[in-house]
Amino acid sequence: MTATSYNRAPGDRSIVTDKEEPISAGALVYTLGLALAVIMTALSFWVANTSLLWAAGVPLGLAVLAIAQMGIHLVFFLHITTGPDNTNNVMALAFGVLIVLLVMAGSLVIMTNLNGSMMPADLMDMQMHY
């Protein structure tokens, strides 16, 4: 069999970590990740400030850029891969992402709904200040 018997530790680039390796071996991966992350960040700031884009689409574009940048950080800085020695790390991550999505989307949907069934805003402004 060729599959490795252990899953790789998160953050490690290979299963062989006790062996000393030259410092240049992984620097390219980090530098590539930094370059991509800088491009993503610059794009995000540009998208938020430009008037060239359709304003209603900007928040969605920002969300897409942020998720893409998180992916870049996971791949290039935390070395999460789809390889067979990474299954445990990816499964734990998938569960975390599931809970995060449930908490965020659930709160937003429920609170938007509740706000929709509240009394009109001008009446509410007169009655309470929260």
Partner: peptide, 12 residues
């Protein structure tokens, strides 16, 4: 990024 480079230095 520098934290990643530090991890590389630790490995070597």
């Amino acid at each position: 990024y520098t934290c990643g480079l530090m991890a590389l230095a630790v490995n070597s």
